[in-house]
Design a protein around this nucleic acid. Structure first.
Lengths: 218, 218
DNA sequence: TATATAAGTTAGGCGTATCTAACAAATTAA
DNA sequence: TTAATTTGTTAGATACGCCTAACTTATATA
């Protein structure tokens, strides 16, 4: 069994390494808010447990075993987020911190019940995929809204960078997953987009925002 | 803020000392499964934090502050148990271990939502009172079934010693809180009771069982 | 390519929560 | 009331997860 700390390292390794596959000690250190020497020694411990591949002065990669365990923790995290939003009416901007704690609960039955009550969801409230019971996670083919062209009509599928502040920004503008977005114009200079969201006529989205929104083509 | 370990000590002190008011190092040690020297040093720490009254070689008592904090942890525990049973359909024999973990979650909103969704319950699934938001807990005037006389008709109000095995025993006999129990006879030798539960005609309950059942007079 | 900078590592220390072994006080029994 | 037993305490060690300071390797730059 892994400690709470080990679980957090695995999760961070999975999340940070999602694209490149490898993670530097520096990145991990910054992501966890833990100093490099601490991270260094923890990585050795994870390597002893065959959860990561590690060689001195090289970036770390998760082993298959590590990937699976990380995936299962993320599964519990996202299942929990979905439960908190759907079954407990907690705002999507508040669920991350709670799920961060509940994901470490040791109880098969608890998470199985959540899964069942939610009717086996495949995504969390922010549109991120929920890994399956084998810890396998598959991202659908989404595009950033910022990469879309004028005239495109898309559906808001997920949000990147699920900081509470960003989600509150979206709440204030009544923007939710599943909404249709029409791109009416793009200002070349700063990439501000003029869009029509749902049935509303027109509003402006800065590039900072449009880069954080993942959309699905319609 | 108290650590998870400190919270467990407070909770144990509250639960063990419920009648006598004071708790010996030995009792605490056995209850927590932690050796006496460890308990001894932890008590000193709690005393420094003004959570317990402590003098060498004397039993420990909770301060008002300690009582309140313990009460609030027990509140979270019991609210959680109720939520797990009522809203997640988890059996009452399984909820204790899960609640034991969830009670340490740091999130006001999470427990407030539970409370609200449960419509502000006053007892947990085992009939134990849920402390209020000030950590105050009041036990109703229940009697042990074993103290009742032949001819009494009572209602099953709570179970003492909520071990999973005992609860499974009750499940197997379809005995639930709220059921009416008529005492039809008591065998003097071993205090075995002949009772009628609900609409069922007659069954036997050993003293071991009847001592663990709290009832309310009708 | 030599050197300055960034990233990674080692050594040694700290606080928490735990333990065992040894000793002291309090309680019980002879 | 003395001795035996039980309970409580002190001392010293361990594992974990964290830190700073100092050093090493790798990378970037002049």
């Amino acid at each position: 069994m892994n400690s709470l700390t080990e679980e957090n390292y695995l999760k961070a390794l999975y999340n940070i390494g999602i694209d490149k596959g490898e993670v530097s000690v520096k990145e991990l250190s910054e992501n966890l808010g833990t100093k490099m020497p601490t991270v260094n020694s923890m990585i050795k411990k994870l390597a002893d447990k065959k959860l990561v591949h590690y060689e001195s002065y090289k970036p770390v990669t998760l082993t298959e075993k590590g990937k699976k365990e990380a995936g299962l923790i993320i599964r519990k995290h996202r299942l929990t987020e979905m439960f908190l939003v759907d079954k407990m009416n907690i705002g999507w901007e508040d669920v991350h911190d709670i799920a961060e704690q509940i994901e470490h609960i040791k109880s098969q039955i608890f998470f199985d019940k959540m899964d069942e009550l939610l009717d086996f969801p495949s995504v969390d409230p922010h549109g991120s995929p929920i890994p399956d019971k084998q810890g396998k996670m598959i991202w659908k083919e989404y595009n950033k809204l910022s990469d879309c062209k004028v005239g495109d009509t898309v559906k808001l599928a997920a949000v990147i960078n699920t900081s509470s502040d960003f989600l509150k920004y979206l709440n204030a503008r009544d923007m939710r997953l599943g909404m249709k977005i029409k791109i009416k114009g793009i200002e070349q200079f700063d990439k501000t987009m003029e869009v029509s969201v749902g049935k509303r006529p027109s509003e402006m989205l800065s590039n900072v925002v449009s880069e954080r929104l993942l959309v699905e083509n319609l």
